[in-house]
Design a protein around this nucleic acid. Sequence first.
DNA 1: AACCCCCACAACCGCAAGCCG
DNA 2: ACGGCTTGCGGTTGTGGGGGT
Length: 318
Amino acid sequence: MRKPDQMTKDKVSHNNNKSKLRKGLWSPEEDEKLMRYMLTNGQGCWSDIARNAGLQRCGKSCRLRWINYLRPDLKRGAFSPREEELIVHLHSILGNRWSQIAARLPGRTDNEIKNFWNSTLKKRLRNNNISTPSPNDSDASEPRDVISGGVMAPILHEHDIMNMCMETFSSSSICMNTLVTSSQQFDPFSMIDNRYDMIGAAGLFNMPTNLAQFGTGNGQLYGSDYHGILEPNSTMGLERDLSLPPLESRSSIEENNAEVDEKSSNNHFNNGCFNITESFKIENMCGFGNHGQGENLKMGEWDFEGLMQDLSSLISFP
DNA sequence: AACCCCCACAACCGCAAGCCG
DNA sequence: ACGGCTTGCGGTTGTGGGGGT
């Protein structure tokens, strides 16, 4: 799309007169700085990160850049038809709660979904329902009843929704089924260049499946709270919260995490390459994962199960 | 070729909530 | 209880690119 270099130069030089904090598009150099810092130090206080990484950006800007663009678990590229369906349906339920919708679409950010909705889906749905004005044509900030709110979203069967979520997980670049050995290396900085070519990150980060899956779900999975979340008796899990990794991956997640913890003090870079399993500070990378509300069970005030029950009561699944 | 318009999307802004001293 | 700081979220803006005329 835009050429970040040129654009930033213009804006930056303009802004430098007013403030020493940069604004506007991020340059590849800035991206690399932030990426490098995040991969080596993990997430902390964003204003500190901005300072320590040598970026003349505010913490907020760094956070946004990381969450929306640099996170290794991001799934780039066009939305699949399944994802589109899921977005439409979730939007019919949740309204403009983009972060909660994003929490159900691993590898997608709320910003991405929001843009996609506003630029593409809204129009498409409007055209499809030209004769029957849909509630979602307006900027629905409130969740709507699928039935009473009009027939905007396709009425999905319960198992369809589940399948869609599952498929979304399995098709996500961060849930690649590619088995990567623990010694495999990757170069996170190649991704930076590739991003400017709008090439999806899929495949660029050959993260081990279980480790990569750890990157899905809500942000707190990566924060200091994740240990509790991963408790075997925890009620969280795919059956409760679709933003979470499948059950079978959890044990390996724990193992990997322990391993990562243990080795995280090792050298992070080796000839420019980054050995992910040796130094990827997953527990500190809480900025990635869909940074939704972070509630394990709830979508804001609703938990998904309850929501499904509500749906079932409203819709008679054939 | 030049201009205009529309689109997609990155980034910003303002507000609210949470945390901590 | 209060204020400052940080984070998260949703709405909005601004820009480059592509397509049409």
